[in-house]
Design a protein around this nucleic acid. Structure first.
Lengths: 207, 207
DNA sequence: ATTTGCATTAACAAAGTTGTTAAACAATAT
DNA sequence: ATATTGTTTAACAACTTTGTTAATGCAAAT
């Protein structure tokens, strides 16, 4: 072996930082390498292509997300308990990964081909993770305790509302006239806002 | 004069289409020219730089937005009337310019230097357009009819909520598993959702 | 019909992008 | 010590990007 002092990890860390900061396109392999303190040939040596390294970075982040969500989803508890904790978990995760929502949006919008592999895999995950919860939800709806709504719609609403909070934050950070206190105040308020909004949609009254 | 058959406008239209579709970076001058059916030298001849043409496209769109908003803002009517119509106007505008929110977000996030000129100008506009409404709002708050909140926060909430609706739409269009009926249904619901949410924030009860 | 002046093109240039490769290098096993 | 193996670099190649420019084309004014 040569003089490697965890070059691979250094490149990963640099790539993650830049992708989150500048998006996919503006994070050039040369820039990533520079940030990691190596030649850009190293990046290709370890990861073959820019696409590959991006996939690895995204994978790492999404696996963290799934790990956070699993403890909430794995138990069969009352629908609202699971939902509330799921929303809060997602919110907290995005709050500690504030640029991730923006990056995912960027890629979905302008480089969706990078996500093709994920979209395939998503079908399987969706079924494994959500099937029992979907059944419970449908029971609640049949018995009239919850307003009619599809599982997909709920998931969609939660995901978009959560992402919107942190994407607008990233955007605002780059504009003037918004103090960081107001930002944090806004964020704090949003978490319970989302919970309330979903509750209101399901039960017809505020939580 | 040479053989010009509104080349300038054709380039503008092509640029607008591509910027909205692919964002700023992926819309190369060569691609825009190709879309317009001319050499990319023409683009530089008429607009000097890519940055310039982008500014013109953005200007055009923002001027349309201001024009839509002016009739709502210019009269001195009760606070809630102005607010409700303002929200609905912005929503309708974004609904007929569905990719604009995404483009603005893209540029704010990854090429904010393009917006520097606007950020300067924004200060003046803000004062001219909002000053009287701010006074009315503050009167309402002092008299206890409206919960304390700053003008900036209201504008910010309205803008981010509206943008979020259409950005999530653009994103979803590029993913699978979401029918266009559900999309339209979702959009229709969002307009009154935003109105309600702002009303609730100001008056403590649903609209 | 010829000059004038904008419009248009093709070719070029400089810089930057992703990716490859041959050669040099360093650490370990033999 | 040396052969082996994986690591690192510098140089290069092919392509794309933005922008310029010299030459050409075209239409109207004189």
């Amino acid at each position: 072996m040569g003089a490697q002092r965890n070059t691979e990890q250094r490149i990963m860390a640099a790539a993650e930082k830049l992708f989150l900061e500048k998006g996919y396109i503006l994070s050039t392999t040369t820039l990533i390498a520079k940030e990691a303190g190596v030649t850009h040939a190293m990046l290709h040596y370890y990861f073959r292509t820019k696409e590959q390294i991006f996939i690895k970075v995204l994978n790492k982040n999404l696996e963290e997300l799934i790990s956070s969500l699993r403890p909430v989803m794995v138990y069969q508890r009352p629908v609202w308990e699971t939902l509330k904790e799921g929303i809060e978990m997602l919110f907290d995760f995005l709050n500690t990964h504030r640029q991730l929502a923006g990056l995912i949006y960027d890629v979905i919008s302008y480089n969706p081909q990078l996500l093709e592999a994920y979209i395939q895999g998503l079908g399987g995950l969706k079924n494994k993770m959500f099937e029992r919860h979907r059944e419970m939800l449908e029971d609640e709806i049949r018995s009239g305790r919850i307003n009619p709504i599809s599982m997909e719609q709920i998931v969609y609403d939660i995901v978009t509302m959560n992402m919107a909070v942190f994407m607008s934050m990233t955007a605002m950070k780059n504009m003037i006239g918004f103090s960081s206190e107001k930002r944090e105040e806004f964020i704090a308020r949003q978490k319970s806002e989302i919970v309330s909004k979903i509750h209101y949609r399901l039960y017809g009254k505020l939580y």
